[in-house]
């Protein structure tokens, strides 16, 4: 049973950042703007918030500090994503190119500033945020072991974001308008919706969530930040497509990716799995193979927002 709990807890470390970032990407794409800059935004969010953790490390620790860092990561992410929004919406630039520009800029900027501020590019932080066991809830059998032990507050924030995102997208006026802009912006415009505003909102939300995802990604897995999020922004894009741009499906997709990644990384320490004699490459391939297979079956009736990636031009017929 311990092994099951262990794998589940590890899965969460992989799945939660993917979930948060993919949900961010969803908001952007559902508004009609492809956001390939998720990787760069994650890097920036992680950079400023980890720098904050580093600088405030002497006087602060624990969950309060982490919550402040979360706010900083989200603000950074939204500000940074404004570049993409401006280029893609106002300037009608190719969205892939402006996204790629941000992806190239972010790590360089993080290294450059980190060196100016502290002389070294790696930013150290003290991880005082791990929750051994949540009081009361942690002592519930099975569920307590699965959800409330060896965890981070960010796991619950991720779940809260999932619920909020589902509600906002499907149950609010804002969500309806956002989706309309992604499917048929001219129709939305004709109905009196300001498409530019909605697209800005979509991109900024994606920026805030991607920035947060960067922080959530780094905190449990290292003791410093070295200007990289190891391609998890791109993986989140795969999760987004795998999840067919729908929040609940995205959750399943990120859990699936998280599980396969956790097993691929930790099978050597699990006697049952290592005795099976399956080559490690197979474990590592599973998420990508599965993505390919799912894409083959779903691409014919893909649920991609129809206007995603097309700059909205009012005068176009």
């Amino acid at each position: 049973m311990n092994v099951v709990y262990f794998i589940f807890q590890q899965t969460m470390f992989f799945a939660i950042p993917l979930l948060i970032v993919a949900l961010g990407g969803m908001f952007s794409e559902r508004s009609g703007v492809v956001n390939i800059a998720l990787e760069g935004i994650m890097t920036m969010g992680a950079f400023t918030s980890i720098l904050f953790l580093n600088l405030s490390g002497n006087g602060m620790q624990g969950q309060g500090q982490l919550l402040l860092a979360i706010v900083i990561a989200m603000v950074t992410g939204s500000l940074f994503s404004l570049f993409h929004a401006y280029a893609a919406i106002n300037m009608k630039a190719d969205q892939t190119i402006s996204g790629t520009a941000l992806n190239m800029f972010a790590p360089a900027f993080a290294i450059f500033v980190a060196r100016i501020v502290q002389g070294v590019q790696q930013i150290q932080f003290a991880n005082t945020f791990r929750i051994d066991a949540v009081p009361v809830l942690g002592s519930i059998p099975v569920i307590g072991d699965l959800f409330f032990k060896n965890t981070y507050i960010t796991t619950y924030i991720g779940i809260a974001i999932l619920i909020t995102a589902t509600v906002v997208l499907y149950k609010t006026k804002f969500g309806l308008r956002l989706r309309a802009c992604g499917e048929h912006p001219h129709a939305a415009d004709a109905a009196g919706i300001n498409v530019y505003h909605m697209q800005y909102a979509g991109v900024v939300i994606s920026g805030a969530l991607a920035g947060l995802g960067g922080l959530v990604f780094v905190v449990p897995t290292s003791t410093n930040f070295n200007a990289t999020v190891s391609g998890y922004g791109f993986l989140a894009l795969a999760v987004l497509i795998f999840g067919q741009w729908k929040p609940v499906k995205i959750m399943w997709a990120s859990l699936f990716f998280g599980l396969t990644k956790a097993i691929a990384a930790s099978y050597s320490g699990i006697p049952f799995l290592s005795s099976l004699g399956i080559p490690s490459y197979l474990f590592k391939m599973i998420p990508y193979l599965a993505t390919l297979i799912v894409l083959i079956f779903t691409s014919r009736h893909s649920m991609a927002p129809r206007a995603s990636g097309v700059p909205y031009d009012k005068g176009e017929r």
Binding site: F217, N224, K261
Partner: peptide
């Protein structure tokens, strides 16, 4: 530093 490395180390410790 990657989550994979962290996870592998964690599984060994476990």
């Amino acid at each position: 530093a990657t989550p994979e490395a962290q996870s592998m180390a964690a599984s060994w410790y476990q």
